[in-house]
C-alpha cells in the first residue's frame, strides 16, 4: 500500500517537472510550436533544441536501466513491446500530425495550458479525451 503512494508521488513530481520544462521551453505556447512547423516561412528552430535536449537525457536513462534488474522503486521496467510498423501506427500518427499542425497543440502542452484555466486549452483537452475514448471503444468492440 505504501509503495503505491511513493510511486504516485514520484509520478506527480515527474508530471510537474515535465510541465515546467514545457513552460521553460516555450512549448506551452502554440504560436511558438507553429513557428517551428512553418519551415517554409520564418522558421523558429527552438523545438528542435527542446527535442535534442530531452532525447539526450532520456537516452542516458534508458542506457543506464539496461544494467539494472529493476527500477529504483523496485518495479519492473515496462519496455514497450511493439516493434511492427502497422497501418494504425501510420494512420494514427498522420491524424495526430494534422491536429497538431492545425492549432499547434499536442497532449502535454494542452494539459499545461488547460491547467492555467485557458478556455482554449480546456476545449482542446475535452475533445482530445473524447478522441482517446472513441478509439478505445472501437478497438474493444473490434476485438470482442
Amino acid at each position: 500500500m505504501q509503495k503505491h503512494w511513493i510511486l504516485s508521488l514520484s509520478a506527480f513530481i515527474c508530471g510537474l517537472l515535465f510541465g515546467l520544462g514545457l513552460l521553460m521551453a516555450g512549448m506551452a505556447n502554440p504560436a511558438k510550436v507553429l513557428g517551428f512547423l512553418d519551415v517554409t516561412g520564418l522558421w523558429d528552430p527552438s523545438l528542435a533544441l527542446v527535442m535534442l535536449g530531452a532525447i539526450a537525457v532520456a537516452f542516458i536513462a534508458f542506457r543506464l536501466s539496461k544494467k539494472m534488474p529493476q527500477s529504483l522503486l523496485n518495479t519492473k521496467f515496462s519496455w514497450p513491446e511493439a516493434t511492427a510498423i502497422t497501418r494504425p501506427l501510420l494512420v494514427g500518427s498522420a491524424l495526430f500530425g494534422l491536429g497538431w499542425g492545425l492549432v499547434g497543440l499536442c497532449p502535454g502542452p494542452a494539459l499545461v495550458l488547460a491547467g492555467t484555466g485557458s478556455v482554449e486549452g480546456l476545449i482542446f483537452i475535452v475533445f482530445m479525451l473524447i478522441g482517446i475514448r472513441l478509439v478505445d471503444y472501437f478497438q474493444a468492440k473490434q476485438s470482442s
Binding site: L17, F18, V50, G53, S71
Partner: peptide
C-alpha cells in the same frame, strides 16, 4: 526546457519503470 523534459522522462523511467 528540453533538458528538464528529458529529466522528467528519465526519472519516471528510472524510478517507476
Amino acid at each position: 526546457g528540453g533538458l528538464m523534459i528529458g529529466l522528467a522522462c528519465a526519472l519516471l523511467w528510472l524510478l517507476n519503470g
